[in-house]
């Protein structure tokens, strides 16, 4: 759906950045899964190159933003059939817990962004030993 960037957010903090200019955004479809090590986010961003992509984690909010690749866009009457257009992608998520910002890994392949957000050391499950005295 076409939405304003900030409005497309899933529960997001009030201090989240608002899109300054009126622009159309697509909300990329995502898969998110969770393991003991952290969260993996997969997002469909077809037509996006690594240079167009910006990923930000700020105050526990993950922001994905990808600039539209207007080089593919042809604005004339030559379209016989049209199902999609080229617009920017934008989506934000409130992260459930602390992530380790130093070790975030991002990979872009075949138009799919794979993002691995490792859990911060402080929130990893810990085994507590019981001392017997």
């Amino acid at each position: 759906m076409v939405k304003n960037c900030a409005e497309s957010t899933v529960p997001v903090a009030a201090n989240a950045e608002r899109a300054s200019e009126r622009e159309f955004y697509f909300s990329p479809r995502v898969d998110i899964y969770e393991s003991e090590e952290g969260l993996t986010v997969l997002a469909d961003v077809p037509g996006v190159t690594p240079e167009d992509l910006s990923i930000k984690v700020e105050n526990g909010v993950l922001s994905l933003h990808a600039k539209a690749s207007h080089k593919n866009e042809v604005r004339d009457a030559s379209y016989l059939w049209r199902e999609f257009g080229h617009a920017s992608f934008c989506r934000q998520f409130q992260l459930p817990e602390e992530v380790d910002p130093e070790n975030i890994k991002a990979e872009l392949k075949n138009g799919v962004l794979t993002l691995f957000l490792p859990r911060a050391e402080s929130v990893k499950p810990r085994l507590i030993e019981v001392k017997v005295s």
Binding site: L42, D44, V45, P46, G47, N72, V74, S78, Y79, L80, W81, R82, E83, F84, N110, G111, V112
Partner: peptide, 20 residues
């Protein structure tokens, strides 16, 4: 999703197929 354009001599079919 697909877009089809007529370029005179040829058709250009653009297919939005991420992750294939």
């Amino acid at each position: 999703l697909i877009n089809i354009r007529d370029e005179g001599e040829a058709y250009k079919v653009e297919v939005l197929a991420p992750g294939v």
